[in-house]
Amino acid sequence: MSDKDWNAVLTRIRNELSDLAHYVDNARKGIESLETTVKLSTEKFPEASRNLSSITGDLETAANSIITILEGMIGDADKAQRLISELASYNAAIPGDRRARFDALIKELDALNSGGKAATMDMFTFVSFHDLSGQKLKKVMDSLATVETKIAELAQGFGFDEGAAQAKTGVHEHSKVSQDAIDMLLKQKLGQ
């Protein structure tokens, strides 16, 4: 390769690296702007990751408060269930002409209470999203930190081709599968 060609390659690689660095920097700033506890002065991803831990900590505190309320609601629903059952036991004491209406009211109360409890249980599932968000954010930060390290290594050592290729694929692709696919896989492997 002639010097002219080599210089052209170097310029291209330098431009690629610069683009990558800007991309990573913008990504980092984008993540930082999500929450004020992440300081804009943060220079390095590891630092941002530490700040991210405080964000997930805040999320956990908030989720714990919600769960406490939900547990209270479930406790109330259980108590209401016992009261409804007790009320229903008075059925025999109700005059015959009003008994049908009494039974209908008990059934309606029971259905309302069961529906409320089921909805509360669904809320537990939705609250669990906070945990997933925290874990996924952490993975994004780890991946970006890997990219940053690779770019730094490239810039320092000029081990262009291999390094640049790795930097471009800093976020590794994995074959993510659905719960159905997991069940199928388990069926094959475990015979379930």
Binding site: D131, L132, H174, K176, V177, S178, I182, L185, L190
Partner: peptide, 20 residues
């Protein structure tokens, strides 16, 4: 929920696997 995780867990002797 990566396939390789499920396979690794099965090979290690997990009884079942559920994704959050």
């Amino acid at each position: 929920s990566q396939k390789e995780n499920v396979v690794q867990a099965v090979e290690a002797g997990v009884n079942n696997y559920i994704v959050k």
